[in-house]
Amino acid sequence: MTMLAPSRFERRGLIEYAALLGLLALVVTSLAATAPAPDKLGSGIARLFAPSGLLTQMVPPDFTRIVPIGWKLLETLQMAVAGSFLGLILALPFAILATDRLSPHPLVRHVARALIALFRTVPDLVWAIVFIIIVGLGPAAGVMAIMIDKIGFAGRFFAEAMEETDPGPQDALRAIGASRLGLIGSAVIPACLPSFIATSLFALEKSVRGSAALGLVGAGGIGVDLKVAFDLFNYDEALAIILMMLALVIAVEQGSGWIRRKLI
């Protein structure tokens, strides 16, 4: 008996064809409505290189204000560190409440999951605006925004790590009569520690990248200097700021990569 190879494509029903057509229509209309017209894009790019254009004005970068910019860069890093620290500390209880095995009640679990999803879904710039209303302009609002963003980010990954660990040790300790906190402290956290550390380092990197933008809305950090430089057409200083931000991000990513390799 010979085995006939299956046909390459499954036969689709009418509904599937209709759905496919709908999707295609969505893509086409979206492109038509929002994507830039090719000729406009072309002339815009050409303008960048004109004598008064952005790129021409940007080089060479102007580092005359390097000291004050350096201090603002430090403030940016401090916001990222403080916000990540607070966010990571708070992410752990949120994550614990969001896991099937460790949550005290399904209702608590649903609420914790919903909050984590909310924190993750709303962009950090929006959180920054909310906290500017609460604590006023400045780095405090930025720190709060980063904190909330990190609860959403790390809360999700912490919870996933805890769901994925071997349940055997937890069950054995539960059978011994250990308390919930005992299970978490002696079985869950030790087993998840490498994953927690990796997530925390990513969270810090993400915060450093994100915190540069928070200044654009007035939540502290280097972003405001960048905005001012653009507003005053000091494009050469803007490039200096961008390059220094880039250096900071690369330094933090290298540093956290090094820690990751050392610890895990």
Binding site: I176, A178, P190
Partner: peptide, 28 residues
């Protein structure tokens, strides 16, 4: 065996005391 990986043998044995004690002092 259901031991907690990454912890020492001694830490794992100490976990048994959670039968009558609790708190961070009996975690590791």
């Amino acid at each position: 065996h259901n031991l907690v990986p990454r912890l020492s043998a001694l830490s794992n044995v100490i976990h048994g005391v959670q039968a009558r004690m609790s708190g961070p002092r009996v975690w590791v």
